[in-house]
Design a protein around this nucleic acid. Structure first.
Lengths: 147, 147
DNA sequence: AATGAGAATGATAATCATTATCATAATAAT
DNA sequence: ATTATTATGATAATGATTATCATTCTCATT
């Protein structure tokens, strides 16, 4: 079952409708990689159909998220972005505070420890966010050059 | 050196001034625990001096943050909050997605692994955010009761 | 294929948090 | 005390998100 089909199944289960705008927004979103703001997703969608409205993008992103096809990723500056989960297994982020570059990584040891914490506090796991903030090698070099 | 003094030293170093509003906002902020929105900090400050303005709170929080006396903590819903660092060593957060309850925890093993990742990618560490999301025992019980 | 009830759309207005502007007031160095 | 500089608070401006609503679309049923 591909992404579009999964979205259709989700909508059907909720007695909601698959529409052209929804399909276009999902396709536009899936055609990207990385972290997109709602506005960026609107721009992608308008490449397919310029008539798509801002409001519909906000509404549809939430649906896609609730369908389990995307996740929200808050940037360190508070900007709200989304990334789709197709061919994109779980990972965490290492971000450069200077240039904004993002490196994705996965550390099994950290994942294991997180599970332990859920158990310790009797929480039912629902996910997590982790972002490491630092200065990338290039920006370190740039800084040194300034002096 | 206490918090107020540290803030004064920071301001002096930046050729900026210690003022009544700034002192009041810092004192109000230090009198709290946990994660406060800018608005909540304004309310605290107004208990001391009702004349304090919203804009000054925003400006002063940034100063306090840059002085290293507070840190920003984005909530899972995107709300921007701040917590002061006095008598409040580093920790991470476990949040209930249902009721919003926050548990603070510290896991040395995770901290160690994070350091390794910085090293692996040659990043200069500048901090990190981690938030585990789950359903707390109380909300699990409430859910079960619904059916 | 036509119908009709319900749902979705896009334009726009409304809201909310945050930032910018600016005339006045407070501060700190002389 | 004087003065140059910075900070203040009121208000306007901005940017992101959400609500409203008349019109349009979708889909199960005929």
């Amino acid at each position: 079952m591909n992404e579009i089909e999964r979205f259709e199944a989700y909508l059907r289960a909720k007695h909601q409708k698959m529409t052209q705008p929804r399909r276009i927004i999902l396709e536009a979103f899936l055609s990207t990689e990385g972290h997109l703001t709602a506005e960026a997703i609107l721009l992608e969608a308008k490449k397919i159909d310029p008539g798509i409205g801002q409001a519909t993008v906000f509404r549809t992103i939430r649906l896609i998220e609730n369908a389990g096809l995307a996740r929200e990723a808050l940037q360190a500056d508070g900007a709200r972005t989304f990334e789709h989960l197709a061919d994109h297994p779980h990972h965490d982020h290492l971000r450069c505070v200077e240039c904004g570059k993002v490196i994705e990584f996965l550390n099994p040891s950290i994942e294991r420890e997180q599970k332990k914490i859920f158990t310790q506090y009797s929480f039912e796991p629902r996910g997590h966010t982790m972002e490491l903030l630092g200065l990338c090698p290039e920006c370190q070099a740039k800084k040194r050059g300034e002096y």
